[in-house]
Write a protein that binds this DNA or RNA. Structure first.
Lengths: 189, 189
DNA sequence: CTCCGACTACACTGGTCTGTGAAGTCCGAC
DNA sequence: GTCGGACTTCACAGACCAGTGTAGTCGGAG
């Protein structure tokens, strides 16, 4: 990734925290600049516009999250453990936060499909579906729909956990994902 | 429901459309008043504050959606059809809109748990889970976790459809829900 | 010694935000 | 015929919005 100047790094860190905690439209650039110990001039010199800062926020978050998921996949012992690793990450991650999925939340605020952040959001979901597909193939499970089914359980768990305040959603999703994999790996008829 | 004055009715209709299409923070009360052919004075006389208008928007939307789901449940022929009716509504509904779930979107923007809209949001999800539970019981399926599992598939399909732009998510969710019900209604071991 | 890039300081534009105050019109019910 | 509720008009407050212009500081690399 492109190396950031110290000021830009701080701006991005502060923006990430505030955008996630309060929403994108609810946080002004003045606040971000002040909180970063930087002038607004610097913010605009580094990022060009608020929209681009938002896109940079989403890219940075996506990068961190992919690294975490990838590490969990690699750390798993068996092929099924690898497939289900994102669900384990989800359970760790929800313990730290109750504001839901940053990408879903950003989608809610970015109504213009041409906004530079929208591509990052869609990519994040597609990457996870492809990761499921790749790990299912590796586990010898061949089902064209299963990767999407797992994505759906994952996203459903995240939104249900946060929005409906149902912590049990995480367990149900993991168990459901495991059952779906077992069903496909050992067909009975 | 409380009867609204003609002005209030128009304000609520306009607010519903604009809040859903562009987000809550992105739409100002001036715009809503102007678009409703009403003065801002009237808006504040009827709703008291923007936060209360937001809550009224969510309540109205919740009411319409429950009516639609309830009608679909009642129209279904068999017990399993009743359980899966919300998935049929989802497929109809997504054909009309690509901005995702209004309640999830509102959650993204309402960071204060004490906001009057937050209770409406959580209730909407709980109501659906309870509907699933009631219809599962009626179908003679006894599984403590299945209602939540179905909620999860439902929410996952909605977010995946909109955010990831994966229309197939709707079919996968319906099929997954059906399979989960069959598995529980006819246990093999 | 000079140039460049990171950054500061700060005023300023033009617009939008939620919310209020005061005065007045119109209409139907009692 | 008067009273109340729905609604209008419009000015106003005070904060906040994204974004720019100008001028200048500082340190390191060539």
């Amino acid at each position: 990734m492109t190396t950031l100047t110290p000021g830009a790094r701080r701006i991005l860190d502060v923006a990430s925290e505030l955008f996630y905690a309060h929403g994108i439209h609810a946080v002004g650039v003045d606040t971000i600049a002040a909180e970063s110990g930087v002038t607004k001039r610097t913010l605009y010199d580094r990022f060009g516009s608020k929209d681009e800062l938002v896109a940079a926020y989403l890219r940075a978050r996506d990068e961190r999250w992919r690294a975490r998921v990838t590490a969990a996949v690699e750390a798993a012992d068996d092929p099924i453990g690898r497939v289900l690793a994102p669900f384990a990450v989800l359970e760790e991650w929800t313990a730290e936060s109750d504001r839901g999925c940053a990408f879903v939340n950003a989608f809610a605020e970015l109504d213009d499909p041409a906004h530079p952040g929208r591509a990052v959001i869609a990519d994040e979901k597609h990457w996870l579906e492809e990761l499921f597909a790749a790990e299912l193939a590796r586990a010898g499970i061949d089902d064209a729909d299963l990767a999407l089914h797992l994505l759906l359980l994952h996203e459903g768990a995240l939104v249900t956990y946060a929005v409906a305040e149902r912590p049990a959603a995480l367990r149900i999703a993991r168990e459901g994902a495991l059952r779906a994999c077992e069903q496909k790996s050992v067909p009975e008829h």
